[in-house]
Design a protein around this nucleic acid. Structure first.
Lengths: 340, 340
DNA sequence: TTGTAAGCGTTATCAG
DNA sequence: CTGATAACGCTTACAA
């Protein structure tokens, strides 16, 4: 059964051979094949050898579907839902998750939401139907209560970036406020006291970064100067224009803070064109190499985020029943000096 | 069955409810539940309603494993094996694959080889045991004949970056030689005739890029000048030093070609420090923004690569039996002028 | 319109 | 040590 010849004379299998095929080929019972395949004890070496030969001849491969259906074994897969797998941050995050489960022999199933709450829900549902053992979700929508029954049934979920809406789950978040605070404090400590800010106050982590910046300013005894803030720049080139205007002022800033990844390249370009030794403070994902002025980058380690999240998930799969935990990741502050 | 109470009084399911549970809850036969779940016709609206209510009460979710085991339905998953999911090129590629199968409702299972042939084989085997419907593989090892039985059994594979060793399969490759030819020809056309090369001849696509460069030089009637080539620079800083040396020569080049992504940042730094209006030609993955000299980037569209590969795979899954096809992707040449 | 029975390929149970 | 038989949760085929 399962084998036939194609017209060309090349042997082709219609369907994969099963344990029963192997058992017949080897002249043993099905269960003996199962024992050999799973490395269970209690098979005479000679018998095992016969079975192995039959497996080789038939090129048998165990059907995981059937195995898991019967044994209730975990699928050894984790589901990862992020905004866009193609973005470097998400990619590094995925890599971190992979590293965390690699030695266990687990695999990663992934999907992108593109910020669409419906797609998020579709993905999560599809992953659950695929029987993933756990979920890592960077939420797109505001409400994740649809996950509640799954959580209760024992499929754990860890949230990334921000907590689940309406749900108590383990969460790994980035400390945007603390990062901005540290970055700005560093710039101030380096003697640059006149800081200007470019960003879009309506975009997501901007408010936190602004708050952190003000913390640092206050800590240094400095006042917030509204004239040095351009917080309604939408898009990269708007950021560039805002930065250029700030630099052209009578009392130009000694440091510029680009509050988002969208604005940073524009601000940097404005600075490069102005040929001014003004320090640039930028956040995640800014390529600091090669600029002719000092650049301070505040960035999170995406791979670590993935690793930590995976560890929380594995801990739940090990049966941990603690209350929902929150891990806050502190960013790294790096200085890049021109010509360095 | 399957339900019990935890100590806290919160209702918890030990195992997921099955169609049988739903059938009992609704007072119908199991098959009727199956009909409702799968949208099969021939169920009276009132009955369907009863079943739906039971499904809602029990929060029933169909077990895909069991369904596919019995029906031999495809798993609606593709396996993707690349060198490192965390690298931007691989990430964009994954995104391209996702886009190609998204409307079909398919998912992506991924793994990184880190260039290790054993890991590649382990991943491919694991993916096959997970019953993925098709494989996309950027090969790490030199020999993929181990895949032959799977291909014969009807799990198609498409190779990425280079063809499978010892196997005839569909393949999507990048035209490194043509890309270099086009890039160098562009630089020459812009009037820069003295080109220097920095790279590591033993690294992978360097030979092809070098060949393309020589094509372009020959096409313009120029001779290859060995004095302008530094082809044994290992690592970024070695590239930086080599570039600095070239720029310090008596007759410095008017354009510098960084033959790999490793070398490009170093060469760019050397150029920036030399404050010279020398054109830089770089390849995939170089961030061209902000440099104070002209940058030409020759780059492939990773997402398109993924999309094309996925299309080839889907075509095979539709039953196509043509001989192995090869798709060659032409790169894009982009100019970035300083202050632009 | 609804239900019954068999079976997918494996593992679990228990008997020889 | 080895094997028969039931069961996993579902779909297929067929009956009522």
């Amino acid at each position: 059964m399962g084998r036939e010849r194609a017209g060309t004379g090349v042997q082709v299998w219609r369907s994969r051979p099963t344990m029963l095929d192997v058992a017949r080929e080897a002249g043993v019972a099905l269960k003996t094949v199962s024992r050999v395949v799973n490395g269970e004890p209690g098979v005479r070496p000679a018998t095992e050898e016969r079975v192995r030969r039959a497996i080789g001849r038939l090129r048998y491969r165990r059907n995981d579907l059937a195995r898991r259906l019967r044994s209730h074994a975990p699928t050894a897969t984790l589901g990862l839902v992020t905004g866009d797998v193609g973005r470097p941050f998400a990619a590094a995050l995925a890599r971190g998750v992979e590293d965390a489960v690699r030695d266990l022999g687990w695999l990663l199933v992934m999907g992108s939401t593109d910020g669409d709450a419906d797609r998020e829900r579709w993905l999560v549902t599809a992953l659950i139907e695929h029987q993933v053992d756990g979920l890592l979700v960077a939420p797109a929508g505001p409400d994740q209560r649809y996950l509640l029954p799954e959580l209760r049934r024992g499929t754990p979920a860890v949230f990334l970036g921000r907590p689940a809406g309406g749900l108590e789950t383990d969460t790994v978040v980035l400390d945007e406020r603390g990062g901005a605070r540290a970055g700005v404090a560093g710039v101030l400590a380096a003697g640059r006291c006149r800081l200007a800010f470019v960003g879009d106050a309506s975009a997501d982590p901007t408010a936190e970064r602004l708050a952190g910046s003000r913390d640092a300013l206050a800590g240094a005894g400095l006042e917030w100067d509204q004239d040095l803030a351009r917080l309604n720049a939408v898009g990269t080139s708007a950021g560039e224009q805002a930065a250029a205007a700030l630099l052209a002022a009578a009392e130009p800033p000694t440091a510029l803070v680009a509050l988002s990844g969208t604005h940073a390249p524009g601000v940097a370009r404005a600075l490069a064109r102005a040929r001014r030794q003004v320090t640039l403070l930028a956040f995640d994902g800014f390529d600091a190499a090669g600029w002719p002025f000092p650049v301070v980058v505040v960035e999170h380690d995406a791979a670590e985020m993935g690793r930590r999240a995976a560890e929380l998930l594995l801990d739940r799969l090990d049966g941990s029943a603690e209350p929902a935990r929150r891990v806050t990741l502190r960013p790294r502050v790096t200085w890049h000096l021109p010509g360095g």
